[in-house]
């Protein structure tokens, strides 16, 4: 069924390197998204009308535009508009950070407004200052709600990174295609084995992270 092709020569190493290329893009985007997302999420809770309108539009754009379309706009459109040549990798990081920041900001905002007013009032009654309230009372609660959700976002970003193949980045699917092409004569039905392997590779990466998120969520319930 073409599974033996994967273990021939350096094929498995090449597949893993392809996965690594995709992972690199997603991890850079995740890091950027988390930092910017937390900042934006906190801005959104300030209830300033101007900020609200702008962030609402931003979130709605991200909510309804497929990441693939955003990728096309940046990769093809930016070059056309400015004449500058953005590499596929940079375009991908820009798009995934743009998307991830919005998702992260929404999670942060959701967690912050889910803290009941009584927590602030009780802290004030106990004589805690605003900064003390924030650091000792609010942040620990937010972290417990936010962490499982943001870990979940990471798996979503890893899965979405598979799209970069469509703008020509050599990642695991592309490597898979190359392996199939190269072995066309000796293993005509390698496609099954190779794509099954890619399938399982993604599962092997995302499943444990998803489990961690579920575990933390259960552990910190209440």
């Amino acid at each position: 069924m073409g599974i033996e092709v994967i273990f021939k020569g350096k094929n498995l190493v090449r597949l893993l390197a392809g996965l690594g290329a995709a992972m690199k893009i997603s991890l850079i985007s995740v890091a950027i998204s988390i930092v910017l997302g937390i900042a934006l999420g906190m801005l959104m809770t300030l209830k300033k009308p101007v900020i609200n309108v702008i962030t609402r539009i931003y979130l709605e754009i991200v909510r309804i535009m497929p990441q693939m379309v955003l990728l096309f706009i940046v990769f093809f459109g930016f070059t056309k508009l400015t004449g500058l040549n953005l590499s596929a990798e940079v375009s991908a990081v820009i798009v995934f950070s743009f998307w991830g920041t919005a998702e992260m900001a929404d999670l942060v905002r959701g967690c912050m407004i889910s803290i009941p007013a009584i927590q602030y009032e009780s802290s004030a009654a106990l004589g805690l200052g605003r900064l003390q309230t924030f650091i000792y009372v609010i942040v620990p609660q937010i972290v417990r709600r936010l962490l499982p959700l943001s870990i979940n976002l990471i798996t979503r970003m890893i899965k979405t990174t598979s799209l970069v193949m469509m703008i020509g980045i050599v990642e695991v699917l592309k490597v898979g295609q190359q392996i199939i092409e190269a072995n066309r004569k000796t293993a005509p039905n390698a496609a099954f084995g190779v794509f099954a392997a890619v399938f399982l590779l993604y599962f092997a990466v995302c499943w444990p992270i998803g489990r961690l998120s579920k575990y933390l969520e259960k552990k910190w319930e209440n």
Partner: peptide, 9 residues
């Protein structure tokens, strides 16, 4: 835990 693109392939 897998992307649609990989499933379609």
């Amino acid at each position: 835990n897998t992307p649609l693109l990989v499933q379609l392939f």
